[in-house]
């Protein structure tokens, strides 16, 4: 297993490097500028956080998936937009307003995540059906509350800076994304919850026999995914200074693509945070590269499909089989 995990990581690092290096040949040096890296850096977090949420759902097994991520993110933004001005004014106390905004959005994310967790963990619903339902629910609420129009935050410097500006060269939102990813990685690798989560995803029956509290763990997993989605919602609002109920409708599938390309097993029991981060970055760099090359957006979908197939093929091929017998040192097969 360790060998396999490293191969996946190597593949993703190589993919990132390959795309970056090809940019040197294919487009002008603007691509390699600090501004462009920062520009790409601000676009990664929202998709990256949603992909991490999908990863958690998948790792927990039980047919785990979360289709409601972006809908919850948008709803969190909508509710925060409607309630925060009641507490603080964005003109008079921008920092406090932003904190209130973020706090309300997080609370919404927790409620939405808890709903998913309750349906899947305690009511025993199939995740794909449950999150499809909550996706429609969150979307419906957001449309209903906004009448379908976009909500303009206007230019609030502290919020816009958070969404778009760098600190020490790294965009705030990207730095936050990396911090969250690191914390999640620690949670998964070094806590009891994390370790048990992987086991539960790997063999739910054995998990139950071993005394793991499966229902509670499923609940906590989707709660966490909901929180991640709400953070994505805050970042989206900060980046665009506006919130719309149907923002990022294509994100549902892209987040899943990122997770699968990161080697997260849809059946459960395996996934690495670092790989999801690299996968999200690879997709972003490739996307921007294609835009720089003025290649039609239609081809972008094609390119992503190709990358996914390449990745799946890479997982299937046993590279060891092509190495001459003399160099091989395989474990014993059969008896």
């Amino acid at each position: 297993m360790p060998r396999r995990a490293d191969a996946q990581l190597m593949f993703l690092v190589a993919l990132n490097a390959l795309v970056l290096l090809s940019s040197l040949i294919l487009v002008d040096r603007q691509f390699f500028s600090l501004f462009n890296f920062q520009s790409m850096g601000t676009q990664v977090p929202e998709l990256g956080l949603l992909a991490l949420g999908v990863m958690l759902a998948m790792v927990s097994g039980n047919g785990g998936i979360d289709l409601s991520g972006i809908a919850l993110a948008n709803l969190a933004g909508v509710i925060a937009f409607l309630l925060a001005p009641l507490i603080f004014s964005s003109e008079d106390a921008p920092a406090a307003f932003f904190l209130a905004f973020a706090g309300i959005a997080l609370a919404t994310g927790m409620l939405g995540g808890a709903l998913n967790g309750a349906l899947i963990g305690y009511a025993g619903m199939t995740p794909i059906i449950a999150t499809l339902g909550t996706q429609l629910l969150f979307t419906g609420l957001a449309v209903g509350l906004t009448g379908g129009s976009a909500l303009r935050l206007g230019y609030v410097q502290i919020i816009d800076d958070f969404g778009n500006m760098p600190i020490w060269g790294i965009p705030y939102s990207f730095a936050l994304f990396l911090l969250i990813a690191a914390a999640l990685a620690v949670l998964l690798k070094f806590t009891r919850f994390g370790n048990h989560l992987f086991l539960m995803g790997s063999n739910p029956k054995a998990a139950r026999f071993a005394g793991l509290r499966v229902q509670s763990m499923l609940f906590r997993t989707y709660l966490l995914a909901g929180i991640l989605a709400s953070i994505a919602g805050i970042i989206i609002a900060a980046r665009n200074s506006s919130i719309k109920w149907d923002y990022g409708s294509s994100y549902v599938l892209v987040a899943i693509l990122i997770a699968v390309m990161a080697g997260v097993r849809p059946e459960g029991g395996y996934g690495r945070v670092i790989c999801v981060v690299l996968s999200a970055m690879a997709l972003q760099i490739l996307s921007s590269l294609l835009n720089f090359m003025q290649i039609s957006n239609f081809f972008r979908d094609c390119a992503w499909g190709l990358m996914l197939l390449l990745f799946l093929a890479n997982a299937r091929v046993d590279w060891n089989a092509y190495i001459p017998a003399a160099l091989r040192g395989n474990a014993r097969q059969g008896s």
Partner: peptide, 21 residues
Amino acid sequence: LTEGLFLEKSISANVTMSVLD
């Protein structure tokens, strides 16, 4: 195989899982 072990996981994960505390 189906009720006890987590086959793809390491020996360490399987052995220590109940005493992580």
